[in-house]
């Protein structure tokens, strides 16, 4: 945490070059969050700029009581939530209906039930994910409500703990775990469905 103090102090003294370094350091984190939360591609870069402007305006208020990355994530999260609220986008959603739909879709589209299919079709090499499956995953991920996408991003791309995600989003740890579990299960079912479908077509 203290490693960041000299850079922050330089920025507070008006050094814009230091702020440019700061942006380059945290750009990845902000981009991940904004790109996953905001689906409208044309607004993403401007929102990223707004996030850094807010950071610049409020940096003097940061007291080094938490990790700087957590504080940045909070600002990014709140900026995106404000944007989504203005656009009346879906933030929260009960995934139960989708989970049921996903299960029944797999049952309906196969000659036999899901259990009998499991273990019967070959999966591609474990480390490689095909372009087609990757695109499907991207579509499915973007169809999830923004809160689920955020939690998935913070966990899988930023490797943050449940506690840190809870601090950023203001959700209790139990909710974070629950959202993460349900979103991943839903995506896994979709992926399984896709693999089964590919095999069925062959």
């Amino acid at each position: 945490m203290d490693q960041e103090r000299p850079l922050v102090e330089k920025i507070l003294n008006g050094d814009l070059q230091a702020f440019q370094q700061f942006i380059e350091k945290y750009q990845r984190l902000v981009t991940h969050m904004v790109f996953r939360m905001i689906l409208n591609e044309s607004d993403r870069e401007e929102i990223c700029q707004d996030v850094f402007l807010k950071i610049y305006q409020n940096l003097a208020k940061f007291q080094f009581q938490s990790k700087l990355s957590t504080w940045i994530s909070k600002i990014t999260y709140n900026t995106c939530i404000n944007y989504l609220q203005k656009k009346k986008a879906l933030l929260y959603d009960d995934l139960t209906i989708r989970e049921n739909e996903s299960d029944s879709a797999v049952f309906d589209s196969r000659p036999s039930n899901l259990d009998s299919l499991k273990g019967e079709f070959p999966l591609p090499d474990e480390s490689a994910i095909s372009q087609e499956v990757s695109e499907m995953l991207y579509v499915e991920l973007n169809s999830l409500p923004a809160q689920y996408r955020t939690i998935i991003t913070l966990y899988h791309l930023e490797n943050l703990s449940y506690d840190e995600i809870g601090e950023i989003t203001g959700m209790p740890m139990g909710t974070v775990k629950n959202y993460l579990f349900r979103a991943r299960k839903l995506l896994k079912d979709k992926l399984l469905e896709k693999y089964a479908e590919q095999e069925f077509v062959k």
Partner: peptide, 13 residues
């Protein structure tokens, strides 16, 4: 198989 699908999912995420 379920595990492998999850593994792919984690890689994708």
């Amino acid at each position: 198989q379920n595990y492998m699908v999850y593994k792919q999912l984690y890689a994708g995420l």
